[in-house]
Design a binder for these strands. Structure first.
Lengths: 191, 191
DNA sequence: TCTTCTCTGGACCAACTGGTCTAGAACTGT
DNA sequence: ACAGTTCTAGACCAGTTGGTCCAGAGAAGA
């Protein structure tokens, strides 16, 4: 806008579409898809209704899919950042749990899993369910990839990745109930 | 429960209050607290609005608390029924997982945890959160009691009960994502 | 400059939300 | 039979929901 030193394509503070996705992800993971109204999202993102329906022609549901995808990609980055520099699988798992626990604390010790809160609220919407399943299996596949890379056998890697996913989902839920990230930090001991 | 042998005070087909609680529990665990309207609950329970506000003066929120309590009690019964006749903790855990997997299948392979779906949808409602925490800790305490009774040491029993809870929540979630109860049935192997 | 396109701003709407209220049905004990 | 209580039935309401629509601001290319 008023900045001449940065390239003009990236000179905006943050594009409206981006603000909408981030606001939606934050609110949905706190209160669920049905628990958040468009008004609240628009207020948080400081965007008018017209912008929402310009960027997401199908409205709330489009936004939900986009925000879940964005949140999932953030988690994938976290997984990669944890396992890539790790000496072994146990190291990477330990590191990932710490990162997730910090994320939990930063989010007010309340937020739920952004994908399940957003997309898992009803048997009626097949598209939501399919997308959620796709994203979650992506997490498991990413962990499995690193497990293989770090020396685990094929079957062991698959089983470990799935167990780790289960522990993380369950642990995050208990942390939310207790408003305390301690559970998440102790998960590696259970693997 | 069967009607033929029960006293006349309970001989009606099923009291309205009961129908409301069960309908609410079913619907909330599918779509979350905000995802279900009163109209839907009343239709499923075949009750008029007046009855709801007679039995639950504070309306939807009262009903949600009652239905979560009811669902929690059902789970406690399931835990007791699994561990009481068991030879050891592993036996009881195995039995509980089978029962829960059957429950999952019976509910259409879709429903989420009735307590978290109903009470864990926002940082704003402290009463909901406190009640959910109370119910969940009740589950863990019940499992811990049986663990002690079946020979585990004090520390081991507490740790095992908590791990089992985490596995069940995480496993149930993954089963929901995959619409397949297989994950739940394999949980005992992870303990 | 003029034109074209992307994006914003918000007024407006029908449908639905949870909640209130009251008339009376159904059961209770006397 | 009576009176008192419990429960049902649904009309009604104000507030909110997600969604539509279009005038126009702003940027981009000619």
């Amino acid at each position: 806008m008023d900045d001449a030193t940065t390239p003009k394509i990236a000179s905006k503070p943050r594009p409206t579409k981006d603000r909408l996705i981030r606001a939606a992800a934050r609110l949905f993971s706190n209160c669920g898809y049905h628990g958040v109204g468009l008004a609240e999202i628009l207020a948080e993102a400081q965007a008018p209704k017209g912008s929402l329906y310009h960027h997401f022609p199908n409205g709330k549901s489009d936004l939900a899919l986009a925000s879940a995808t964005w949140a999932s990609d953030e988690i994938l980055l976290l997984i990669a950042a944890s396992f890539e520099p790790a000496d072994g699988f146990a190291d990477g798992a330990e590191s990932l749990c710490q990162k997730l626990a910090n994320l939990f604390d930063a989010g007010g010790k309340w937020s739920g899993c952004p994908i399940s809160s957003t997309l898992l609220e009803g048997p009626d919407n097949a598209q939501f369910h399919r997308h959620a399943a796709h994203l979650f299996e992506g997490w498991i596949a990413e962990v499995e990839y690193h497990a293989l890379r770090l020396g685990l056998g094929k079957d062991e890697a698959a089983a470990t990745a799935q167990s780790f996913y289960i522990l993380l989902q369950g642990g995050w839920q208990l942390a939310r109930v207790r408003r305390d990230s301690a559970v998440i930090r102790t998960l590696p001991a259970l693997l």
